[in-house]
């Protein structure tokens, strides 16, 4: 079992004909993901690896190839348009990998999506993978994952890989790993992902990887306290050593007030009953011990 993606996922790749799109589509196909179509305006009629048809429009990909999920590799200036096009065409899961979308564009995008029955993951995220379903909708290295019953939700890319690598080496398999993205404004936040994991019979516990900036971790803590998530939660918050007022790579990773501090987030999550992972070097070990 899994959340968001599974064997029924029929994936469309927006921006398939670009360098990044081609590379990762090949990787996703090799992993077992059912990539049914690509979409690039002006490139309709082409085929990728002689088997994946490319269409000019998302609407066409939905109608002709039955796409129900989309991954976006479109450059930042056009990525908001790509998200809106997918949502308008009735795609139910949109995973936006693109980094560097202006925040005010995301304000409009999220406003548009509020009226639609769609889940957006990202932008600026590694995507979603479910090892048990052999479904990878993202750019993460496939080989570090192993099927299992622990979910992962994270604001980071490479730190998620590190966490998964440690889990796998400790013998802890994953149900689904979700990178929600490093921007201040993303589609699904921790709360939405935790709600999905709560309802997933294939997930026994969740590893949450947060970082400085914003209030996403506090919202997760409030959600747990309100009874929305009842499974064991292991939490790591990166950036305890970060100075205030400086953007630490991610647009969302900046300490602008007390709530943005790693210590505030850790306190909120601990108060909600989460087991705090003491060091990024001991993620696998902590979860393994916690799972008994």
């Amino acid at each position: 079992m899994s959340i968001l993606v599974n064997r029924n996922t029929r994936l469309l790749v927006q921006g398939l004909t670009g360098h990044q799109g081609q590379y990762h589509t090949a990787q996703m196909l090799a992993y077992g993901t059912n990539v049914v179509a690509g979409a690039t305006p002006g490139r309709g009629g082409q085929r990728f690896q002689d088997r994946v048809p490319v269409y000019d429009e998302v609407e066409e990909a939905v109608a002709k190839a039955g796409a129900n999920a989309s991954i976006i590799f479109v450059p930042a200036p056009s990525a908001p348009d790509a998200i809106l096009e997918a949502a308008d065409a009735g795609i139910k899961l949109i995973v936006c990998i693109t980094e560097g979308i202006p925040a005010l564009d995301m304000v409009k995008v999220l406003h548009f999506l509020r009226e639609k029955d769609v889940t957006l993951i990202g932008p600026n995220c590694p995507g979603v993978i479910s090892p048990g379903e052999r479904c990878r909708v993202g750019i993460m290295p496939s080989d570090i994952h192993t099927p299992g019953r622990v979910g992962v939700a994270s604001r980071s890319g490479t730190l998620t890989y590190e966490a998964v690598y440690q889990l796998t080496r400790a013998g802890v398999g994953q149900s689904t790993c979700v990178g929600i993205g490093g921007d201040p404004l993303v589609g699904a936040n921790f709360v939405e992902v935790l709600a999905l994991f709560e309802d997933d019979p294939g997930t026994d516990a969740v590893v949450l990887i947060g970082e400085i900036g914003g209030v996403k971790e506090q919202q997760a803590a409030d959600f747990i306290k309100a009874g929305g998530f009842t499974k064991p939660l292991f939490a790591l918050v990166a950036g305890q050593s970060a100075p205030p007022g400086k953007r630490m790579g991610h647009a969302g990773a900046i300490i602008t007030g007390t709530a943005a501090l790693a210590s505030s987030k850790i306190a909120a999550l601990r108060d909600a009953g989460a087991a705090i992972i003491p060091s990024p070097a001991s993620i696998g070990e902590t979860v393994k011990r916690g799972m008994g």
Partner: peptide, 16 residues
Amino acid sequence: MNGAGMAMATMDAIQA
């Protein structure tokens, strides 16, 4: 390091 989260986590581990 590569990746912002990884970079912060590495700094945290050094400091810890």
